[in-house]
Design a protein around this nucleic acid. Structure first.
Lengths: 246, 246
DNA sequence: GATGGACCCACTGTATACACTGCATATCGA
DNA sequence: TCGATATGCAGTGTATACAGTGGGTCCATC
């Protein structure tokens, strides 16, 4: 029974999940986190009852959680089973384009509204990331990278945009490996973040938007190279980094 | 009992909704359509049992549908009641910015991949809309406008982008009134659509993106004027057009 | 008349029970 | 031995039952 794998993946997050009034919410959020952090791999199959067992609740709240996750395209029903949905390489590349457009908009709007303390905070996040990169802390770098982009989106003062950006970031967490594994990429990222910062500080919204879009397109190019690499050397034993980041 | 209003709003869509294996899906889709088409106004309050009564099902499938709609920000729980969530004028304006960025990306990618038949189809949609506008068919114009943008997004060959665009379009359907009501706007729209078409046909992706973004920003400006208008003359008895478009 | 508290009821959240459906395996016939 | 039909079973979808809770109301007191 593959139940064991399910339990092992869910247990850690489940036990430390705070208290909710709705157990349906708790199941939803835990399962969501487990999928986004790739503790539960794409393609994993299970039933409602399996989940009810792991979470020690009845099928009712499980069903509600599953429905919601299907709505977010994190799970899908295939015939009579529930499957963690996979991301195709094509979808990964698609997401970069959308992310570029949204981040460019965020950078543009952020420039128009930025206050000095906000710029300082954004710079601080980048410096933190610099420290993490220098310490070879890949998981920390990855997290701080997401935080940088999240903060940039918040600076846009556009709640709807922020929601979209976060939705995209959630997908990014599901990408196989990270472009960080590409030699020299972390330093490039820091430099590109700095370029965005400079443009924001200079009040040049067009430059900020362009820098943000370029930044994502650089990542896309790296990703493309990594995918080609995977394709040509399929037996390569995956990079040094374990898959479940964060 | 406000149940009557609920029944009146839901009944028409509910009765013509095709057959689904899951009544939970049927409730979800019907309720979704009723909200998006503004048959059920923002702020409308009801309980799970009310819905169960209207749909003649038990609370279980109703709960699942409601959860999913909350996930899409179409409903919200306020204390102990379910409320159709409202869109603030600020959110409406925010959405234009995101829509502009996404449509610009769609136009750019569409230009890169467009085939002659696709361009012909897009032109045909615009000509249909021209006919609807000339016939003063506001609902038809509105629908064809959405179809034009939907087709543009499909031409991008980016499934993820298409999903985002559709999510945004759904929000657009909930906007109060439409910018079509603004004198002369329909003709402007047709002209702006034509500009995008010309750029695509010329293979000028940058121009297509710029035209698409400009198009949405024009709508945003009109919307801004309408909102200011509402604010200065709050007693104005809404335009000639009934609210539930489509 | 206003304000605070207690009680009650409506509504929600979860569990359980039951019916239905599709698949797998077994059994019978040729 | 192979195929077709029957039968059991696992899993889902819906209904219902039950317990807990928050909000509203009504009364008492200031």
């Amino acid at each position: 029974m593959a139940d064991d794998e399910l339990l092992a993946a869910i247990q850690p997050i489940w036990s430390e999940s705070g208290s909710f009034n709705r157990s349906s919410d708790a199941v939803f959020l835990t399962l969501r986190e487990v999928i986004l952090s790739q503790r539960l791999p794409a393609g994993k199959v299970f039933t409602e009852e399996d989940l009810a067992g792991v979470f020690s609740v009845s099928r009712t709240p499980v069903r509600e959680a599953v429905q919601r996750l299907i709505g977010e395209h994190l799970l899908e029903r295939r015939g009579r089973r529930i499957v963690v949905s996979a991301m195709s390489p094509a979808e990964v590349l698609e997401i970069y384009d959308v992310r570029g457009a949204l981040d460019a908009l965020a950078a543009r709007l952020a420039t128009e509204h930025a206050t000095p303390p906000e710029i300082a905070q954004l710079r601080w996040l980048n410096e933190q990331m610099r420290a993490a990169v220098d310490a070879d802390d890949v998981a920390g770098s990855f997290r701080l990278n997401l935080e940088y982009h999240d903060y940039l989106a918040r600076m846009s003062r556009n709640e709807f945009l922020l929601r979209q950006v976060r939705m995209v970031q959630d997908r990014v967490r599901r990408f196989p490996h990270t472009t960080f594994e590409f030699s020299g990429r972390p330093d490039q990222i820091l430099h590109e973040h700095q370029r965005i910062l400079d443009a924001i500080e200079a009040g040049d919204s067009a430059a900020a938007a362009a820098a943000a879009n370029d930044h994502i397109m650089q990542s896309k190019d790296i990703r493309l190279a990594m995918l080609d690499d995977d394709r040509t050397t399929p037996a390569a034993p995956a990079a040094a980094l374990g898959s479940p980041l964060e």
